[in-house]
Write a protein that binds this DNA or RNA. Structure first.
Lengths: 324, 324
DNA sequence: TTGTAGGCGTTATCAA
DNA sequence: TTGATAACGCCTACAA
């Protein structure tokens, strides 16, 4: 069996309390005892049981992440940075990929609560008021979850403007937008708002092709190119869609950027690596990740009051490739 | 405070034991009591504390994942599928991204042990015998960790052959390979072995450019193209490198595939989406994920004996794009 | 069919 | 400076 504090105590010839003290470096301890205990721990290869500890302390140092999917590098990178930031602060991460079963998001929340997580960071969609009711520290990324849940995001409106204005500068006459549906209360909708505002300012018609959550992007892109033969500029709401637009355009002999200019969104380092030609709006993923973890941990530790500030917005950056 | 079993019991007018029974559906229970308890739980919004339960049962239903980084879609997709498979089997996932601090991998293992995980799935590099010593169920993906730890992987040798032979079929005369260094005991080395075997069989010179773990791929690719003006075929050990080769070649005015043919490796769905033109060897990621979880869970539950079979290899598939 | 009591491994209070 | 004891929330013999 795994050694426990009692075993260490017996071997060191002290009481369990004393062992616990050296473990947590609390109270007065003679050097002698310290050494004896340390030796016994090493000898037994003792590893403390955090379950038992957490049961008593009422703190697990566990954070739950609820995100659509690590398979998408945007979330993958976000999660990578958040996990690092959490680890640095002494927190571990319980991972939930919600996208394969969006309706199970509530199950995930309950599971996290059963596991006594100290807080949750969510970038998923449907997480309603339910989770908040449990009065657990929560931070959202790019999603409005409720009145009192702070949201960390990039400056989506600014990003939408940058992308749209770039296409105008580049003399595009017919600029279209591709985005998800408006259903979810996401700050990402502001990308579309910005696009529409910019179009209006330039007296151009705004038209957005929507891709439903479970929709077939391929098909919608095809349809767009069929229906809009005079399109010469496309602002896609993420890099994956932008890349597909370019692939489909090439297939049809439409030259990018000569005949069609395309701007994406996200600018993950993976896509930058693999597709450096793509013009895109880069989100400061590591800043967002760092901030979200910082907020959550401060909320958990009672330093940050979630009522004090609701939104944390980070600037984006336009990265010009050769697709515009 | 959070309601506990005692509170539920009081409200339902029964003993805590009875509540525990309906919770676990154990022993004999009258319908009447069942309903009363259920009602009380709902009323109090009771959520069981898995910590306490685990402390007693000595099982957490927690699995630790140790992988380089979710930022790489190959791992991102693998982890996505593994998390789903785990969830379906009633297990939750503690996530560790080891790549930012490779030397901390042992810390991660210890952390997982403190958290009393039931098992570990690892695709990281340095995890030595140490972890095995703790006699915890472990499954490795694409890494040899120790004699008794089962390895799940795709058929790397076959993949290496497919890639190399394709380039030969396509009449390439000077075929190079790009891969990581040989240091780690990884089945991925077999991709290189296969390349070398195929070259030998065709009496061609084999030459591999190595990219160290922390190395600059960009630079090495540049050097390769500088030093090897007559190269007309490259087999890259992953899609990211393949894509970079293509980007660099284009920059130099080398036409792909006319003057240079490139084959990648991995074939993640993300890269397929964003770069469908790339010829690649696709790993059956979801099969690997599913198998790894299945093995681990069976080992945890005492069904699978890790001594019985050591390797689980899944076939790969050649996907031809226009880069060859 | 239901309740009592003790224990899972740790920590903190209090006394020595 | 150290040790006995109770408690964290739950589960299961055993008793009723």
């Amino acid at each position: 069996m795994k050694p426990k504090i009692k075993d260490v105590a017996k071997l060191a010839g002290v009481s369990p309390t004393t062992v616990s003290r050296v473990l947590n470096n609390r109270g007065y301890l003679s050097v002698d005892v310290r050494e004896k205990v340390a030796k016994a721990m090493k000898e037994l290869n003792y590893i403390p049981n955090d379950l038992a500890r957490s049961l008593y302390t009422q703190r697990t140092n566990l954070i739950g992440f609820i995100f659509p999917t690590t398979a998408n590098p945007f979330y993958g990178e976000l999660i990578f940075h958040m996990e690092n930031a959490s680890f640095e602060r002494g927190y571990r991460v319980l991972l939930c990929n919600s996208s394969s079963q969006p309706e199970k998001e509530e199950q995930y929340v309950e599971m996290l609560l059963r596991n006594q997580v100290d807080g949750i960071i969510s970038g998923a969609h449907n997480l309603g008021i339910k989770a908040y009711q449990h009065s657990l520290p929560i931070v959202a990324i790019d999603r409005y979850l409720s009145e009192t849940i702070p949201v960390v995001s990039s400056d989506n409106y600014q990003g939408g403007r940058l992308a749209s204005e770039l296409l105008i500068e580049k003399k595009c006459k017919r600029i279209l937008h591709i985005n998800g549906t408006r259903e979810m209360a996401s700050p990402a909708n502001k990308r579309r708002d910005a696009y529409e505002d910019v179009m209006k300012e330039h007296k151009m018609e705004a038209l957005t092709y929507e891709i439903p959550v479970m929709g077939n992007a391929e098909e919608i892109i095809s349809r767009l190119l069929d229906e809009q033969p005079d399109v010469d500029g496309i602002f896609a709401s993420d890099d994956k869609i932008a890349a597909r637009v370019i692939a489909e355009a090439r297939k049809r002999g439409i030259k990018v950027p000569e005949n069609l200019k395309v701007v994406g969104y996200d600018g993950t380092s993976f896509v930058r690596d693999i597709f450096p030609d793509l013009t895109t709006i880069q989100q400061p993923i590591s800043d967002i990740a760092e901030k979200a973890v910082e907020l959550l941990v401060e909320e958990i530790e009672g330093i940050f009051d979630p009522g004090s500030q609701k939104e944390f917005v980070f600037p984006v950056q336009l990265l010009e490739g050769t697709s515009t």
